[in-house]
Design a protein around this nucleic acid. Structure first.
Lengths: 127, 127
DNA sequence: TTAAAAACAGTAATCATTCCTGTTTTCTGT
DNA sequence: ACAGAAAACAGGAATGATTACTGTTTTTAA
């Protein structure tokens, strides 16, 4: 079984993901940590992110420019992805949809919901 | 400029995408067509799908098992992705969200919205 | 303290997607 | 209909994110 031993690297990886609002990619997390933890391996970041996903400690927000972007805020909320600067913004939690009731009544088991808006953010359209 | 010349392969590719409800991947489209069009190249399928996206003729529904899944129904509707069989189901159109007004008022330009539920479909939970 | 399990580094492999080059098809004006 | 230019294509190479593998190190529990 995996994920049951303490690991300082795992802690550092999770902390990095939890402390940012950037909705990071694996590479971003690795870049943030590699100075602090010189012998960190990118594979370790990927392996631990996969574990966090299984444990429900992070969610996948979207794939932006070919990279998977994640979030340690697993409460129900939507996101905005800027197609110009690739920033991901948090939005208020999306309201309970009548679709959810209907799916459940029809024998579909909903594990998670993902609401993403794509467009150009204020910063990009102003500059 | 690209996308302004007639191409029988392009037609066939679009037709294949438009006629299925499977929300196909590029590879699926290629597999469907390669008997009918023996010298079709997978790169051509990818290139034309990229063009259809630019033209707004297809949308990206989700990334399932590492493959991008698309839809030629570009009207506003949500999807359900089964994590067991990797099927993608169409759902009724998702209601206009108050989030959209708020974003627009704050200077964000929304180009598209993507609502995806993940879980286990009826077929998989029954079998 | 010690041996088994888990985690890791480093690197190789995988696989979807994109890029490149030479060839073929389509279009436009004559 | 024809020629040249632009667009599309095949086929294969390249890219790049992610995963798998192997030998080593760390953690755990008795």
């Amino acid at each position: 079984m995996t994920g049951h031993n303490f690991s300082s690297k795992r802690e550092a990886i999770f902390k990095t993901i939890a402390q940012t609002k950037s909705h990071p990619s694996a590479k971003w997390v690795y870049e943030q940590l590699k100075d602090e933890i010189p012998n960190l391996s990118l594979g370790t970041v990927y392996r631990n992110i996969a574990l966090f996903k299984e444990q429900g400690k992070v969610i996948v927000v979207a794939n932006v420019d070919g990279e998977e972007r994640i979030d340690a805020d697993v409460t129900d909320h939507a996101h905005f992805v800027c197609e110009c600067c690739s920033c991901v913004y948090d939005l208020e939690n999306s309201e309970q949809s009548p679709l959810e009731k209907e799916l459940t009544q029809n024998g579909f088991e909903i594990k998670r919901k993902n609401v993403v808006f794509y467009g150009i953010c204020k910063k990009c359209s102003t500059n």
